[in-house]
Each structure stands twice: as C-alpha cells, then as structure tokens.
C-alpha cells in the first residue's frame, strides 16, 4: 500500500492492547507514531512511560 515503505505517520486511536505494536511496525523509517488512546487492564509491550517522560 505504501510502496513497501510503511506509513509516514501512524496514529493509534483504538486502545486495543496490541495496537501499539502494529502502529510501530507499520511506520516507515524515521516515521512518526502518535498515541491518542489509552489502554486499561493490560501492560503495553513498550515502556511508554519511559519514552514519554524522556527529555527531548
């Protein structure tokens, strides 16, 4: 669909437990992943807290 490159921007708005894995896998190199949703009752497989609180 994207010529094999992946999407320039992926926006995760579903809140499904494994959607973040898919979002990151679908992004192109140097692409951007935006997380709008929040998930409950499950631990994300990525350390979101560490990523979001890291200094830019």
């Amino acid at each position: 669909m994207t010529g094999g490159a992946g999407a320039d921007v992926v926006i995760e708005a579903s809140g499904q437990p494994h959607a973040l894995d898919d979002a990151i896998a679908a992004a192109a190199q140097e692409g951007r992943v935006v997380v709008v949703s929040c998930t409950a009752l499950s631990e994300p497989s990525w350390p979101l807290e560490a990523i979001f609180t890291a200094s830019a």
């Binding site: 490159a5 999407a7 921007v9 992926v10 926006i11 995760e12 708005a13 579903s14 935006v34």
Partner: peptide, 25 residues
C-alpha cells in the same frame, strides 16, 4: 493528535481505530 502528527502535503498516514476520536482524526 493532528498537531502531534504534523502531516505534510502528500504524506501517507495510517489511523488505527475508527471510534469517535479515530473518525475525527
């Protein structure tokens, strides 16, 4: 979400989830 995504003309975007927020995004 849009401001964070900062889409530019011609870019390819993938939106996961088509609930109310997903549809608006």
């Amino acid at each position: 979400a849009l401001l964070d995504a900062a889409p530019r003309l011609g870019k390819e975007l993938f939106v996961i989830g088509q609930g109310v927020v997903g549809l608006l995004v």
